[in-house]
Amino acid sequence: PGTTGSLPPTSSSMFQSQPILNQETLQQRLLTLIDGARESWTYAIFWQSSFDNTSGAAHLGWGDGYYRGEENRQRQQTTFSAAEQENRKKVLRELTSLISGSSSSSDAVVDDEVTDTEWFFLVSMTQSFTSGVGLPGQAFMSSIPIWVTGSDTLTGSGCERARQGQVFGLQTMVCVPMANGVVELGSTEPIYQNSDLMNKVRILFNFNG
């Protein structure tokens, strides 16, 4: 997906199933990774790899994600229009209704502004990457971590996901390849490469013991 447009929440074609790792375990690992970090990460996603026998290519799809939010939510300003904000709220209302069965428009979940990074995280749930394509796909194919810091660097990376991340307010994106997928982290703060985080990812997401 190459646009910043709306999220198709109920499109079954966007939600193809795939083999999954234990989701509770994944969530706990993602939470441990960024809640315990000294840096301020906005979200963490585990992109899970699967192999397509037909095309012979590896794919990365949504495994699980943890959205922590920004340190100072009030500081967050959207560059998008009021119409875009209404669209986000509408989608969130529909998703809330689908998940909980409640369609109350006064629900606190939908009353609040949907921030740019929340939207980026939500849209990520609909995305997948072929090995070698996109930031997670490039990291997975090369087995080399990718660490991009700075708005200009994200824009100039030539990667659509990085460009999207920058548009939605991110200043740092990191993709660390593992045997079963890729761990992606994003932040609205500029965070520079450090080996502590890499080591933590490798320990937490080494599913082969």
């Binding site: 079954s12 939600f15 994600g65 939010g69 909980s100 606190a108 979940v109």
Partner: peptide
Amino acid sequence: PRGIPQFRKVSLARFLEKRKERAMNA
């Protein structure tokens, strides 16, 4: 919900719940 595999449903439900918590604590 129909059309959304369980693992995304779980992620989504968790995201919405946390969002509600953040809104109530703001």
